[in-house]
């Protein structure tokens, strides 16, 4: 083998019966000491939220895409005036607000499970999640602020 990473150097192996090679253990494994049940329903509520918000988001997002990109002239009609006209109505304000919150929380929770599944070290997992939560909170707050304080008479 050209890329020989084994213990063999010049035909002499480092490992024998009394000195076996280390086995490759999976990153995290279940032992007797694995903590049992935190007693919270958080994972269940998160799982339920994904299902329910998903159903609502299908309606909200497809409706949003239709209005923005397909109906009534398509994407070319979008401009400051179009957005200002839509956000003058509480109906579209609510629509966009609900869509923003549900989509951000749905996406963030999905990414949280991906990080939980794939990050191997506790430190990596912690910091990736902190980055995710910060980005989520920032986007939700900024979006909410814009929807409520939008001023069509901007100079």
């Amino acid at each position: 083998m050209s890329t020989d990473t084994s213990g063999a150097i010049d035909g002499v192996t480092l490992y024998d019966v009394d000195n076996p090679a280390p086995v490759i253990e999976p990153p995290r494994k279940r032992t007797k000491k694995t903590p049992k049940g935190g007693g919270t329903n958080f994972e269940m509520i998160a799982w339920l939220f994904m299902r329910l918000s998903g159903i609502v988001l299908v309606v909200l997002v497809i409706g949003h895409l239709l209005i923005q990109l397909v109906l009534d002239g398509g994407v070319s009609k979008i401009g400051f005036a179009f957005v200002a006209g839509r956000w003058a109505s509480p109906w579209w304000q609510t629509w966009d607000l609900v869509m923003l919150w549900l989509a951000m929380l749905h996406g963030a929770n999905g990414l949280r499970t991906v990080i939980n599944d794939y990050a191997e070290r506790d430190n990596t997992r912690f910091w990736l999640k902190m980055l995710l939560y910060t980005a989520t909170v920032f986007t939700i707050l900024l979006g909410t602020l814009v929807i409520f304080t939008f001023d069509p008479n901007i100079s």
């Binding site: 083998m1 213990g7 490992y15 090679a21």
Partner: peptide, 9 residues
Amino acid sequence: NPEESDAVI
């Protein structure tokens, strides 16, 4: 075989 090498072949 860990008693011979740490390589998997």
